[in-house]
């Protein structure tokens, strides 16, 4: 299998606070990677660096061999123009903790907005959006507005929206953390159907059960570095590092 995402020496500070300390990590195409770690360990920053929502101070990210957000100039990396970065992002979907649906657009328009802005014909975008809404079980809601939906339904729309550009990789930043416990299951079920569909998924979550069941790899981060990674069994059942053990005992308590 080939590498879909490769992160090299990702380094980032805010002022004198170092948030990422030279993170190296890679993800094979078509697999599911779950990132775990305590609050403030840099999980969101790493995820956001992958689609260049966050700029790295040093290091780079590549998707299928193409550098994201930067290009090589001489012996250095130089940032791309916003236009080119926006084009690259079409290949990377992102699902936010707070959904961030567009409240003034209907559910259908939320899903068609990005494809239409990338030049897909409106009728084709709508047809594709309807198929995606059916896939997340929300066909009958297409004319509603986001605020008329429950949190779980909104997050499913957000997943359909991310799928609409047919990205190679989808990044999920705590997709169920803003949901009431009884709504978590429906969103995880949708993500589960994406696993094994050929898409590469990277999921930041605190849902250990989900990680154990769906993840191909689990990565544990603390203080801006990856301290342990491996199969779910290795990291979740027999963690080697004391900080992983400590974290798991707290989360599972």
């Amino acid at each position: 299998m080939s590498q879909a995402i490769a992160v090299h020496n990702a380094t980032k500070s805010y002022g004198d606070k170092t948030v990422l300390r030279g993170v190296d990590f890679s993800v094979e195409a078509g697999t599911v990677t779950v990132i775990l770690g305590p609050s403030g360990s840099g999980k969101s920053t790493l995820l956001r660096a992958i689609n260049h929502l966050e700029k790295l101070d040093e290091g780079f990210v590549s998707l299928n061999g193409e550098l994201i957000g930067v290009r090589v100039k001489g012996t250095r990396l130089k940032e791309l123009r916003p236009k080119d970065i926006l084009r690259q992002r079409a290949k990377i979907g992102f699902v936010f903790q707070n959904f961030n649906l567009f409240p003034h657009l209907t559910i259908l328009e939320n899903v068609t907005e990005a494809p239409i802005s990338h030049g897909v014909k409106a009728a084709e975008a709508r047809e594709n959006a309807r198929a995606l809404l059916a896939r997340v079980g929300l066909s009958e809601k297409e004319a509603d507005y986001p605020r008329q939906l429950s949190g779980g339904q909104q997050q499913r729309v957000a997943i359909a929206r991310a799928l609409a550009l047919d990205p190679d990789v989808i990044l999920f930043d705590e997709p169920t953390s803003a949901l009431d416990p009884e709504l978590v299951g429906e969103v995880l079920a949708v993500i589960r159907t994406l696993a094994g569909s050929g898409k590469t998924l990277i999921v930041v979550t605190h849902e250990i059960g989900f990680a154990r069941e769906v993840a191909d790899r689990v990565v544990f981060m603390d203080e801006g570095a990856i301290i342990e990674e491996g199969t779910p069994d290795q990291v979740l059942t027999r963690p080697a590092h004391p900080r992983t053990q400590d974290f798991l005992s707290k989360v599972l308590a």
């Binding site: 992002r89 649906l101 567009f102 802005s117």
Partner: peptide
């Protein structure tokens, strides 16, 4: 306008002028 709206539009790669007029 919520910062999350800009981020969502950025993440979807919507061109800047369209982000302004549509979102």
């Amino acid at each position: 306008v919520d910062q999350g709206q800009h981020e969502a539009a950025d993440a979807l790669g919507i061109p800047k002028h369209r982000q302004f007029t549509r979102i």
